[in-house]
């Protein structure tokens, strides 16, 4: 087929193009499938429970990930541990207690409420209340001040200031 021929009948290229696009799409899609963690057991219900518990536990190797997200070896081991314990019929509380006994409260993505974590739980609220109280106090005090304790509005000033800027020659 000579090129002029194709130019006259562009639809002839369509199957080639289509198969090319499909090939490219597959090339992209297959690794994406492969990258998703293969469930280690055939039981999807169990796997779901494993992941639900793993999502509550911090991976200590990569500390901003849960052991459900992490690909670190330790995270994989701990997921296996969670799976084994679930298979033995242990409850979520027992598994979480097992992990905290070994790694401390730090493994919990939701820190428990106790003395050492009180600041963590109440600090933000205290800051917010403090800020609001401060704001109200300042605003009230200002509202009580007579007019002459404020500087006059700077309307005139800004008009003057903007005048030379608009008069600036165009580049």
């Amino acid at each position: 087929m000579n090129p002029a021929d194709v130019g006259q009948r562009p639809w002839r290229r369509l199957p080639v193009l289509l198969s090319l696009v499909l090939t490219l799409l597959m090339a992209v899609a297959v690794p994406a499938w492969a990258g998703e963690a293969a469930p280690a057991s055939e039981d999807p219900a169990l796997e779901k429970r494993v992941m639900a518990i793993a999502a509550e536990l911090r991976c200590l190797v990569c500390q901003n990930q849960t052991i459900a997200d992490s690909h670190a070896e330790l995270a994989i081991d701990l997921r296996n541990q969670v799976r084994d314990m679930l298979r033995k019929g242990q409850s979520q509380e027992e598994i979480v207690a097992y992990m905290t006994a070994r790694y401390g409260d730090f493994v919990l993505y939701r820190p428990p409420l106790k003395e050492s974590t009180a600041m963590l739980w109440f600090g933000p609220a205290l800051l917010l209340i403090g800020g609001v109280v401060g704001l109200v106090v300042v605003l009230r005090r200002r509202a009580r001040l007579p007019d002459d304790s404020f500087e006059p509005d700077e309307l005139d000033l800004t008009e003057e200031a903007s005048a030379p800027r608009s008069a600036r020659p165009a580049p």
Binding site: L60, V61, E73, L74, D77, Y103
Partner: peptide, 13 residues
Amino acid sequence: LDGRLGIDFGVYG
């Protein structure tokens, strides 16, 4: 081999 005692000792690094 399987890191089980490591987990019991709370080893993470």
